[in-house]
Computed example of a mutant assay.
Amino acid sequence: MLTRRGVLAAAAGSLLLAGCGPQGQRPGDGGTSSAPGDQDLFVGASLELSGRGATLGVFQRRALEITAESLNRTGIQVGTLLRSIRLDIRDNGGSPEVAARQAAELTRAGAQALVGGVLGETAAALAAAAQRLKTPYLSLGYGDRIVLPLQERTFSFKLTPDGTDMARRLADLLESQRIRRVVLLAADGPHGDSGVRAVRDALDNSRVDLVRTVRLPETGRNFRSAAERAAAGEPDGVIVWGTAPDSGDAARELRRAGHRGPLFFDAGAVADDTVSGANATAVEGAYAVHPACLGGSPLTATSTAQVARQDFDRRYTQRHGTSVAFAPYASDALQLLAASARKATSLDRGRLRAFLQTQMAEGIAGGYAFTEGRHGGMEADSLGVYLVSQGSWTRYA
C-alpha cells in the first residue's frame, strides 16, 4: 500500500533536487533567459543571531546561506526565466517587536517571502505581521499557535514539529520506560503553552500520571525555584519543554534540586549547548524527541532525500568544520519557496502563498504536507527518539 510517508518520499525529488539540474548548467542555458537582479526571488529573514535564541538562530542562518548558494548554481525556473534567490538576513536579537518591524521593512524593500523566528515569541510576531502585510511567512519557531487559528494565519506556514506529535511520542516513550509519575517543566511563552496543552492531552490517554506542571520564568532568570518545585515529591521523571539554552539550564537546576530520575526533552532542546560544558553531566542519559535528520544521512544514499541530506551535510561540514546537528528548517523553507515559485510560474506573493499550501514533500529536516486547512508542521512520522550518550545525541528509537 502507498503510505502517506511513501507519497512524501516520492515527492522528495521535486523539492530537494529540482534546483540541481544537469551537470554544468547555468542560468541562461537550455533555451531560457536569466532574470535581472531586481527580479530575483527576494527572501527576507529575521533571525535570533544575538541574545535569546542565538543558540539556534545562527545554525538557521548558515542553512539559509548554503541552500541559497546551491539553488543559485542553476537558478530557479519560474516561467521562462531562471531566477536567483536573494537573501536579506537581519538580527532580531530575540525581540518580537524588532522582528515585526523587520518584517515590515523587508516587505517594503520588496521581499516576496519571509523566513525566521526560532523562538515562539518572535515567530508569533512575524506571523501576525505577515498576515497584515499579505506576505508568505515560513516559521522556524516552536509553538502550535503560530499558525492557529488558521483564518488569522493564512500567510503563515510552520516547519517545526507540532506539540501534539512530540507529546504523543513522549507519552509512548514514558510508558515503555515504565514511568508512572511525571512532572512537566515548561518554558514561558507560546512554545511552553503548546507543550502544556499537548502533554496534558497525550498523558490523559496513557497510563502515566502528570503529577504537576511548573512553568519556567523568562530566559535569563534564575530557574532554581521552578526546578525545586518540579523535583518535589520525587517524580519518576521530568519532561523539560523549552528551547536551548533554557533546556540545559533547567536540567542542571533539576539535578541540583535532587532529581535523579530520567529527563525527557522536546525537539527545542536539541543543540550542542544542551549537552556540553556545565550541562554535560546533568543531561547524560536524557531522552529527546526530534526530527530523524539528527541521525545524519547513511553512508550509502538510497533515495533522493538521502542524497540531498548528504549533500547539505557535506557542504555544511566543509564550511563550518562540524556536521550540522540540528534540523535545518531554514534550508527546507527556501526549497519550499523555490518549489512554489516554479509551480506558480510567478513571484507574486499571493500566488506563492497559494502554492505553498499545496506542498507535499520530503525535506532535509523531515516530511511536510501543507494543505489549505493545515499550515504546519512537520509530519509526525518524521520524528525519532534520541538518547544523550557521552555528550552526543544517539538514535534510540
Rank of each mutant, 00 (worst) to 15 (best):
M1Y: 12
A10Q: 13
A12T: 09
G28I: 11
G30K: 10
T32W: 09
G37A: 15
G37Q: 08
S46G: 10
S50A: 12
V58K: 04
L64Q: 02
E65W: 06
A68D: 06
L71N: 02
Q77M: 13
R83N: 10
R90Q: 14
G94V: 05
G94Q: 03
A100M: 00
L106G: 01
V115T: 01
V115G: 00
G116I: 01
V118A: 04
A123S: 03
A128V: 01
A128S: 11
A130Q: 00
K134M: 11
T135Q: 01
Y142C: 02
D144N: 07
T154H: 11
F155T: 00
K158S: 05
T164M: 06
R168E: 15
E175L: 13
I179S: 07
I179L: 14
D201K: 12
D201G: 14
D209F: 14
L210V: 12
V211P: 11
T219C: 06
E228H: 11
D236H: 14
V238P: 01
I239H: 01
V240N: 07
D246S: 15
S247H: 10
A257R: 04
R260N: 10
R260F: 07
R260S: 15
P262C: 06
F265H: 05
G268M: 01
Y287K: 07
P298K: 09
T300P: 04
S303M: 09
T304C: 06
D311T: 12
T322F: 09
T322E: 12
S323Y: 07
D332S: 11
R342V: 13
K343V: 13
K343P: 06
S346R: 07
F355H: 15
T358P: 04
G366P: 05
Y368I: 10
A369K: 02
M378R: 11
